[in-house]
Nucleic acid binder design. Structure first.
Lengths: 339, 339
DNA sequence: ACGAAGAATTGAATCGTTTTAATGAAGCGG
DNA sequence: CCGCTTCATTAAAACGATTCAATTCTTCGT
């Protein structure tokens, strides 16, 4: 049943040349109405479907662009992807989504795949350093834009949110409601966002005479990892526990919340205040509605594709642009002062 | 900087024929070690990257498979995608993810795209009827497996969960805790899962002498749509409200919960019990931990790809298989009998 | 009725990789 | 040192759509 019908077959049936068939599909205005009809009907009759590989081979580039994220299961990234998809669709491009699970090998595999596919460009939230790989990728002609990641390297375009500012915002808020023994829950430190948010929090704490901050390391930014971290905190004697937790993202915060909640005697925010990061849709619906740092996720994706397209057009002489959005504090019950 | 280097260039530099270069990449054991080294170094030196389009053109099929889902933002589908990705990776295939937002036109666009890409096969959770489109797609040689969707049409392979049974499970549970005025929150009815779950609930209600069920229609299966539905219920006079809500999925349930929670005087589960569907990770962490119907999401994805691969190998004489998993009731606070 | 201008159509070349039949080189037993 | 097999390598023919220069066919003004 694997009959593969090509333009030749269509051309034969419609009694025209292959060139005409191609014209019918790509610039029908150049073909007489009668022929268009004839070719069209031949296409329908044979169930002809364009072979994109052949098309691409000739065109030199595919009609899609790659998006490499840390974790598709994180609503922040699906929102971002949504924004990217919207802008891409406007330009007639599809988005190929790859998720790395914080895994360098997977990141590399996706980049290779996308490069072999000759995608129009790559959007990536890279792990660790920018690395030779990305530099080479771009040098070989694949426009690359960093998302959700600031960079000192001005040679790359990027769309990000100021994570240091966000971290500061979160910590300042915790300090402002009278907490002083903060804990930062997050990791691994190969993820830049984690490092930056912690740095921001540290900066805020440093300005406060009595405050301190400790780090509770996690091996992923997931609900599960958050729960594990929460349980570790619970094992400590009450006096030794922090009075406020800043989680590196909302998934972690929700996990921490789940762990704390299993202990009836430990109240959030009375005993421990909690703030997350990203303000995903579920944050507002958590057991204790979660304070968080909001990022314009959809807009980030949209803007990143926009930048990518401009870079793709502009060519080598394109001035790389670094767009930085400012995060926003969202206060909910998990950091309330009255309870 | 868009220098495109091809096998010819590599061949020239390494002083071998293009065929040999190809052999080095695809079956190095056929080539003498010395030549392999020479070619490899030429590849590195030139930064040669295979052109996948040309490769595919020759091969006839791409090395990926398409997955079309209703909503990537729904954790149920990202879990499913994860399972699919795992199995696909074992077979050396990549997964292209397309999301339709319950939109027929988008569904069609993705199917066309995937067919033009000559993917190895398509996994789809189709809207509405199976339709001529899917039948044609398969007839033309693209193996197709339905996911999360049962079908009377035994000519398609499918991996699903018994949604009618799941709906029945949910309603029976609500009835078992003494509720009689049920409301089903869900829609649109173009989504088969919604219709089946409602049917199951109706069946259960029909067996109970005093019980009734009404339908509160939504235009999507999202948190936002759930919140809107919840608000509509709140506008009604207290006596006219249901005493239990079955939401077509957890996102809706969480939305409903958000709406009900805004009214301090309305307690879940005291005034209104609430159960969702899918048992996503956030269900357990909701304001009121959410009862739900669990589906083996990751396993569904994994199994579906497995089936797809077998179908792709087996060819036309392959016996289509319908795999149906059974859903499972998960009871949490939102349907507790004591409060 | 002639030639020019324009419209429609054609056919061959092209994109870059894989594959296969053919060629050449080397090894070996007798 | 002659045939024979084995191994490495090559050259050319695909794959299927697009494009562009060349060709044929219309139409129309004079």
């Amino acid at each position: 049943m694997d009959v593969t019908v090509s333009v030749r077959d269509v051309a034969a049936l419609a009694q025209v040349s292959v060139g005409t068939v191609s014209n019918v599909m790509n610039r029908p205005e150049k073909v007489s109405p009668a022929t268009v009809a004839r070719v069209q009907s031949a296409i329908d009759q044979l169930g002809f479907v364009r072979n994109d590989a052949a098309r691409q081979l000739r065109a030199g580039r595919s009609r899609s662009l790659g998006l490499v994220v840390l974790d598709v299961a994180n609503p922040f990234f699906t929102d971002l992807a949504r924004g990217a998809e919207d802008r891409a669709a406007e330009a007639g491009l599809a988005v190929l989504l790859g998720n790395t699970d914080d895994n360098l090998a997977r990141e590399a595999a996706y980049l290779d795949l996308f490069e072999e596919q000759r995608v129009h460009g790559v959007l990536i939230s890279p792990l660790g350093d920018i690395g030779e790989r990305l530099t080479r990728l771009r040098a070989r002609g694949t426009p690359t834009v960093l998302v959700d990641r600031q960079t000192e390297d001005r040679s790359f375009s990027s769309v990000a949110v100021d994570d240091v500012a966000g971290g500061r915002l979160a910590a300042q808020h915790l300090l402002s409601i009278g907490r002083t023994r903060l804990a930062f829950v997050g990791g691994p430190s190969s993820i830049r966002q984690v490092v930056d948010r912690l740095q921001g929090a540290r900066n805020a704490v440093a300005e406060h005479p009595l405050a301190s901050i400790e780090v509770v390391d996690t091996d992923a930014l997931s609900v599960l990892a958050g729960r594990a971290a929460g349980e570790r905190l619970l094992e400590r004697p009450p006096g030794d526990r922090p009075d406020a937790i800043f989680a590196a993202n909302d998934l972690l915060a929700i996990g921490v919340l789940q762990a704390l909640n299993m202990r009836g005697d430990l109240h959030v925010p009375r005993e421990i205040a909690l703030i997350g990061y990203d303000d995903i849709a579920f944050a507002a619906a958590a057991v204790v509605p979660l304070s968080s740092i909001r990022q314009p996720s959809v807009l980030i994706g949209y803007t990143a594709v926009d930048l990518l397209l401009r870079e793709a057009e502009g060519g080598a002489e394109f001035a790389h642009e670094q767009i930085v959005f400012q995060p926003e504090l969202v206060i909910r019950e998990s950091t309330a002062t009255k309870f």
